[in-house]
Structure formats: C-alpha cells, structure tokens
Design a protein around this nucleic acid. Structure first.
Length: 357
DNA sequence: GATGCGTGGCA
DNA sequence: TTGCCAAGCAT
C-alpha cells in the first residue's frame, strides 16, 4: 500500500487535531446514529441539528424503536427542522430495514441508496463513516473545498460538475479511511474553507490549493443562478367551537405533508381576504365560513417562496367540515395544540391562541 | 437537467 | 428588506 499524497496526509493530520467532537461521532459509530445524523444534516446546519439529534436518540435509540413509532410523534420530534419529508421517509426506511434486513443497517452504498430518503451522498456517508467503505461523500462542503483546491470552473451544482469533482478526489484517501477523509473535508469546509471569508491563513491545504495560488478563492465554486422567489398573500381561518379550534392535516405528498394547519390558502388577484377565505373553506372543507376580525399578520420565507399570512377569525361555520382537499379535519382542544405537528407559521398562530385563552 | 421542498443566520 | 447559504433527495 503506497502512502497518500502529501495534501491528504496534511488533511488527515489536521482532522485528527482540529476535527469537531459531535454527538454522532465515535471511534466505532453506531450505523443507525450515523444514518439519523446524515438525514437531519441534509441542507441543515450542525448547530441546528444537535439538540434534535439528542432528543431523537433518547426517544428512538434503535432502528426497531423507530420502526414501531407513530408518524405523528415522529413529525412532532422533527417539528422546526424543515423538509418534513425526511422524517416520514426515515420512518418508512426504518420499517424497511427491520422487515428486509432484520434491523441491521446495510453497509453497501447501492443497498443503502434503495431506501427512501437515502441518495448518493447519504449512502456514501453512512457506508464510509459507519462501515469504513471506500466511498466519496460529495456534499456541499466537499464540492466547495474541492472546487477551490483543484480550481474547477464547472458549476458544482450540476451533475457534470459533480462528476468532475468525484473523478479528481476518487481514491485519494488511504484504503479504509474514506470516512475520515470525507469528514475531514466537511470540517474543513465548515471551519476554514467557508463560503464567505474563508480563513486561508489557517488552512492545512494552502500549499497545494490551486484557487489560493491563482487568487481565485473568492470566485469559486461557481454555481448556477437561482430563480427569484415569488411573494404570495395568504389567508388562514381560525374557527372556535367551545374550547376547540378547527385544524386540517396537509396531504402527505405536498409541502409540509402530514402537518396540521389552520385552513386557508392563497389570495387570488382581485380578491379580498374575506372572499379568499370563504372560497378556500368551500373548496377544501365544503363549508360556508363567515370571516371575522384579523387576529394577526405573519411573514415567513419557505424554501421557494415567501408569504404574508393574514389570520382571520371565523365567526360561523355552516355545515360540518369535511377533508375534501386535506388528509383529515379535526376540532382540537386549544390545550392540546402542542401535540399536533405544525410548520412555523401555524405554530405561531397556535401559540397566540394558547396565550390568549 | 430543472424544480419542489423548511428553517435560521448572516450581510 | 431581501438574497444567499447550509452534511440533498425525489421526480
């Protein structure tokens, strides 16, 4: 076995000294814990994930414990992390691992990638970190660090750019140490080779870095431009009946799938808030609603659009609401709102109701 | 290949 | 205020 290239040795030495101690990092990591952490970390910062990871592992310490869980409880534990499909797919995948693999998380990347929610990156991460397999886990950090290190001009958020980076890095690590190689580059990307204001003076790879040598660190990595996000005006209705309030559950395969909300929708051009609310409640719930005073205005940015949401009280509901465009409809005691998983805006409305009653 | 999918932090 | 970014996946 030949010794690794000098830059790889420098990287691994730096990682041994400066690598972060994280709850899911162990000398012999639990594959399930690595899996959970990798799903939570998709598009999400380490600092955000840490408390969620601890709570999750306390409640669901094993694949089997998770497989037996109720989806609503899973979503409650996930509430606030975003990209809620991850939670439902993690649950589905845990059930599959129990049914097909006897509760043992697969070690082979191709096998892992067949499970819902596990793509090329996550499969490589689990296989390399938990099982020592030789797989490159090309995440956003690695793309940025490697694009700078090798001076790659191809946009890194395209398949072509990722193929190019993978070819350059493939096999650079000593056999069996892909997990350390991957995590070293992730930590370097998070701590030193950051998107803005990289700390090149502290970088162990500076002597070999092409972008640094050519003064192009600030120009790399290149990315495709993003589309501008639209802004919508939205209305939601709060109907009280005694100590209860009406909630609707969002369809499983749409945004915020499986979560509960105060029913409503987009205000169409030329429509006022009250008209939009009446139309939405007729379409979604099959009832005639009588809108009342505004309870609050909430601004929020989702992944691909922004909203200004007006919460209106609903004074009267004619008929019994049915889930025409929702997964379910329920009159929920205000005191039990916390046990219904919600997105951020609806949780803000719910908290306002609880504090004022 | 392009688009849909949350939230929080930062300039 | 707005845009950009952060350990991606599914379609």
């Amino acid at each position: 076995m030949s010794s690794p290239a000098p830059w790889v040795q420098a990287l691994l030495d730096w990682y041994a000294r400066q690598g972060r101690a994280l709850p899911w990092r162990r000398a012999h990591p639990d594959p399930y814990a690595v899996w959970v952490s990798e799903i939570m970390l998709q598009q999400t910062r380490v600092e955000t994930v840490e408390p969620y990871f601890r709570r999750w592992m306390d409640r669901f310490p094993t694949v089997r414990a998770l497989a037996q869980a109720d989806e609503q409880e899973v979503l409650r534990l996930w509430e606030g992390l975003g990209y809620y499909r991850r939670a439902r797919q993690l649950l589905a995948a845990a059930r599959e691992v129990v049914a097909r693999y006897g509760g043992q998380v697969p070690a082979d990347p191709a096998e892992l990638a067949r499970l819902p929610g596990i793509g090329p990156y996550t499969a490589a991460a689990i296989a390399s970190i938990a099982y020592g397999r030789d797989a490159l886990a090309l995440d956003g950090n690695l793309r940025r660090v490697l694009a700078r290190f090798f001076g790659v001009e191809t946009p890194v958020d395209t398949p072509a750019g990722q193929r190019e980076l993978a070819a350059l890095a493939q096999g650079a690590w000593p056999a069996g140490r892909a997990g350390d190689f991957n995590q070293a580059l992730m930590d370097l990307g998070a701590l030193v080779c950051t998107p803005r204001a990289p700390r090149c003076e502290d970088c162990p790879l500076r002597p070999w870095c092409r972008a640094y040598a050519e003064g192009r660190v600030a120009d790399l990595p290149r990315k495709r431009g993003r589309a501008r996000v639209p802004h919508h005006t939205v209305v939601a209705g709060v109907a009280r009946r005694g100590e209860t309030v009406l909630l609707a559950q969002r369809p499983a395969h749409k945004m915020l799938g499986g979560l509960w909300e105060f029913p409503g929708g987009k205000v169409e051009p030329g429509e006022d808030l009250a008209a939009a609310l009446r139309r939405e409640w007729r379409e979604e719930l099959g009832v005639d609603a009588e809108p009342g005073p505004e309870l609050g205005v909430f601004r929020h940015a989702y992944s691909h659009f922004r909203i200004t949401l007006h919460a209106l009280s609903v004074l009267r509901v004619h008929g019994e609401p049915r889930p025409l465009q929702a997964a379910a409809v329920r009159w929920v005691p205000v005191s039990e709102l916390a046990s219904y998983p919600m997105g951020k805006v609806d949780r803000a409305i719910a908290r306002q109701l609880q504090s004022s009653s």
